[in-house]
Design a protein around this nucleic acid. Structure first.
Lengths: 118, 118
DNA sequence: TTTATATTTGAACATATGTTCAATTGATTA
DNA sequence: TAATCAATTGAACATATGTTCAAATATAAA
């Protein structure tokens, strides 16, 4: 920690603003939860999976085929989407069929899609 | 590439579904652009910065003070937000004041915030 | 039971990302 | 001019993340 850092971390330029914004500031938990939510959508493989599932319920093998990727890679990503409750699944014999489970995030997803497409 | 992969990448379970979803599928560019958009919001420091700037125009030093982080770390993150046109800035003597610049993403940001808060 | 197949899993690997540290730039002031 | 300060930058470092590979599960069929 050198002098420059001390100055800027301890003495703010506009103390009133700093104080008032500090009071409103997100907690670490809120910021982590918020950025964590966006992180789920921050990978092209996952956005493709979500997009694919927005059209149809699909098994792992078909998702892999659609994306042209290995089954293992898709399965790893599906686990992340499962843990975040973004997708649900049902088993039918050997196969596992995935579908979307979270309306909020798919709304977010579609807003993002509109954003890049307009 | 072993046998298992070949089977699942070449032969899909439900060929019709796979073919139709494949035709609708996002291009790599679209998927990268979409996930890239979400990536900007996928870091707690950046979400805090955006949140702070949604309240007020702020200089780098004050943002650092509000977040309790080094000026350098904040400046690096502001560069990312600048490159993505999420924030704009004006110079006033030695100081640089940042403010939000992109309505679309701040809408996205607020939707995410509602999502985690409800 | 043995074989085949759909999926999951863990470890290894490479790459991407965020922060720190030190140095630099640009503007102000003594 | 020299000194000071806000901000930026690049390199180094540690950590996180995504894919691959090999092995393990689980279910169905021969």
């Amino acid at each position: 920690m050198n002098k420059q850092h001390d100055v800027c971390e301890v003495r703010a330029i506009n103390k009133k603003k700093v104080k008032s914004v500090k009071q409103l500031m997100l907690t670490d938990n809120e910021a982590n939860s918020l950025s964590g939510t966006f992180s789920v959508l921050a990978d092209p493989t996952r956005t493709k999976i979500i997009y694919a599932l927005s059209n149809d319920e699909l098994c792992v093998c078909d998702i892999a085929s659609i994306l042209g990727m290995s089954v293992s890679a898709i399965s790893h990503q599906l686990r992340i989407l499962r843990n975040m409750r973004l997708v649900k699944f049902r088993k039918e014999s050997k196969m596992v069929y995935y579908s979307l489970d979270d309306e909020h995030i798919t709304t977010l997803f579609n807003e993002g899609l509109n954003h890049i497409r307009e």
